Amino acid sequence: TYTWNTKEEAKQAFKELLKEKRVPSNASWEQAMKMIINDPRYSALAKLSEKKQAFNAYKVQTE
C-alpha cells in the first residue's frame, strides 16, 4: 500500500507512474488511463481533475 503525506508527493507518485508505464506524451487521457488504472498509484490523486492536471503537466514535461 502506498501513502502520501502531501498533495505534492501524491502528484509526484502519479507522474512517476506515467513515466514508468511509458505513457507517450501524445497519448489521450483515455489511452493513458487504460495503461495506468490497475496500479495502486492511480489513486494517489483522489479527484479526476487532479489526475488530468498532473497528466497534462507530465505531457508538457516529456514533449
Rank of each mutant, 00 (worst) to 15 (best):
Y2G: 15
Y2N: 15
Y2C: 15
T3V: 10
T3A: 09
N5S: 11
K7L: 12
E8S: 07
E8G: 08
E9Y: 03
E9K: 02
A10G: 07
K11V: 14
K11D: 14
Q12L: 10
A13S: 07
F14P: 00
F14D: 00
F14C: 01
K15S: 15
K15Q: 14
K15E: 15
K15M: 15
E16L: 07
E16S: 08
E16G: 10
E16W: 05
E16R: 05
E16N: 10
L18M: 07
K19L: 14
E20N: 05
E20C: 06
K21N: 06
K21Y: 07
R22Q: 13
R22L: 13
R22E: 09
R22M: 13
R22F: 07
R22V: 09
R22Y: 09
V23E: 00
P24Y: 04
P24V: 02
P24A: 09
P24G: 05
S25D: 07
S25K: 15
S25C: 13
N26Y: 11
N26S: 10
N26K: 07
A27Y: 10
S28I: 11
S28T: 12
W29V: 02
Q31Y: 10
M33S: 09
M33F: 06
K34Q: 13
K34F: 10
M35H: 06
I36N: 00
I37G: 07
N38I: 08
D39P: 00
D39N: 01
P40A: 07
R41C: 02
R41I: 03
R41T: 03
R41M: 03
Y42M: 02
S43C: 14
A44G: 04
A46H: 11
A46F: 07
A46E: 14
K47S: 13
K47V: 10
K47L: 13
L48E: 14
L48Y: 07
S49Q: 08
E50D: 09
E50N: 04
K51N: 02
K51C: 05
Q53S: 11
Q53N: 09
Q53T: 11
Q53H: 10
Q53Y: 09
A54S: 08
A54Q: 06
A54P: 01
F55P: 01
F55R: 01
A57H: 10
A57T: 12
K59F: 05
Q61L: 12
Q61G: 12
T62N: 11
E63P: 09
E63N: 11
E63W: 05
E63T: 11
